[in-house]
Amino acid sequence: MAISDISHRKRYLAEGNVYLPHIAVIEKIIEETPGVLTFHFNFKDDKLKDEFTFESGQFGEYSIFGVGEAPFCISSSPTRRDHLEFAVQRAGRVTNALHRLGVGAEIGFRGPFGNSFPLDFLQGKNLVFVAGGIGLAPLRSLIWNVIDNRDKYENIDIIYGARSPLDLCFKYDLDAWEQDKTVKMTTTVDRGDDSWKGNVGFVPSITEQVAPSAKNAVAIVCGPPVMIRFTFPVLEKLGFTPEQMITTLEKRMKCGIGKCGRCNIGDIYVCRDGPVFSYAQIQGFLSSEY
């Protein structure tokens, strides 16, 4: 099943060698939470800086030379091309090394890889974004994309949660969306603290309370696997069909181009055929190893 046609992807290959990264420079680092940093970067090569394009939902392979490479989605919106962004949670060798970088450091970038959120399909619809933790990173690329083309879409609902107030990522975005009259923003935490005055509860149950209508709507869901697994049934209860639910999957994507072999779910290679899938597609997968 070819979910999307790879030949139409936008890609930049150095001298035709898809494994050779482009050098990029870190321009700014934002501490989102104690374990999550957002990096702003730009390509060193001016021509590439101008010509590089991507779509919301696509990812890149980021290198720290001498340490290794890891995949992260591009978390900024293609409508805001002053620089590119990606967000990194500390977890292993490469992410720890990224967390030690400073402004001005050089990294490698390969991409963009994978498919993207289906903008054509989303246009003219009510959009419900449901995200947990750092799972907001791929969605914020789409959210800003949609907000920057606001007249093409109907209502926007954003439901976002994290473990605690300290774990909320992209607080500057949350504030902006809170202010935006055309967006309905709901923020929640699993456990509050003394100063927290907002919702307390897991994302799936808050989604049930907010109860966005399924009529002419599409839900775009991303977060920890357990959150995704509990959110889909809630949305189904609210009347969303599997075709109306979209998510983006995380896998250990080493090559990014469907060759190295570790990101497959049955005959689907997440890096090449995804990472964006509808719940209908996921239900059709042979394997439940997602």
């Binding site: 001498g66 290794g68 080493k254 060759k259 072999g261």
Partner: peptide, 9 residues
Amino acid sequence: YCFDINDEM
């Protein structure tokens, strides 16, 4: 044909 990619410095 599966492979891994590793750096050495």
